[in-house]
Computed example of a mutant assay.
Amino acid sequence: MPKIAVVGTTAGWSSEKLTATVAGHTGFHLLVDMNRCVLDLERNTVWFENHDLSTMDAIMIKKIGARYSPDLLDRLEYLRLLESKGVPIFSAPRKIMGVLDRLSCTVTLREAGIPMPPTQITESPEQALRIVKEYGEAVFKPLFTSKARGMEIIRADDHPEEAIAAYRETNPIMYIQKKIELPDQDLGLAFLGGEYLTTYARQKTNGAWNTTTNSGGKYAPFTPQAETIELARKAQALFGLDFTCVDVAETEEGPLVFEVSAFGGFRGIQEASGQDAAQLYLDYVLQRIGHV
């Protein structure tokens, strides 16, 4: 049986589920927490506890850390070294790097003509104020975040100068997106190996401005329009990830993409459609490495 390690977070629901799924098939259980790894450039490998990760038959990445931050890009460099030594990694570290930074992901999407909400980025508080006045109501988004952590609504009619100054203390590069009217839900469209799997909706259950489960949102089944699926397919194809979810909203003007994610989706897929994403992903990896 192949030795497949899972990179994830200890006690994280999706990381533990994927690791248990792998172990149930292979008999090998290894959940790698990157903050306990050593990149050994003398021996040209990466160690986790007493495991030389260069000896793995494959590595599946579920999470690089509990919270998004620029540090995660450095952790991916550990895995990039392993990939250069011939260890198959799903998804490839270079490809994850393309979506981890919100700005990098956005530029790639816009270069390809993917429709998104109006967005502007600046380091200037004066320009940020101008943008807020232009939009009326804007969402300020950290470049490294998930589940709306650190995001903030700033309104033109509610002391925007003070709000911008406070936000800029921890976010010198300000990613500013016009707040659009949503039908109390947005969508996650899941893809495996570039093929469409399913869609889950994230629905508001309270007065929160966003739909994330951190803010009380719930997952629900949803059948998107064909136009939405094709737009999400085009968006995810730009990055070539093995497993990904594309965050989309269906609006009166048509579907809009928010981002392409490298890590999300397992719980939403299971709760909304009953599909076992961990098993589907493992089956895909086994086929790719020749262990069907």
Rank of each mutant, 00 (worst) to 15 (best):
P2S: 10
T10K: 08
G12I: 03
L18W: 00
H25E: 15
L30P: 04
C37H: 05
L39M: 09
E49I: 08
A58I: 04
I59V: 11
Y68N: 14
E77N: 04
L81P: 11
E83D: 09
A92L: 14
M97A: 12
V99G: 14
V107F: 04
L109I: 10
L109A: 10
E111C: 11
A112Y: 11
G113K: 05
P115H: 09
E126R: 01
E126G: 04
I131R: 04
E134N: 11
T145S: 15
K147M: 09
D158A: 13
E161D: 12
E161H: 09
A163G: 05
I164E: 05
A166H: 07
Y167G: 14
T170Y: 06
I173Y: 06
I180E: 10
I180C: 09
L187T: 11
A190E: 05
G194Y: 01
T198C: 15
Y200Q: 02
W209F: 14
W209Y: 10
A220H: 01
P221M: 02
P224C: 00
Q225C: 11
I229T: 09
Q236K: 06
T244S: 14
E250A: 12
E250S: 09
G254Y: 02
F258R: 01
S261E: 06
I269F: 03
Q270S: 14
V285T: 09
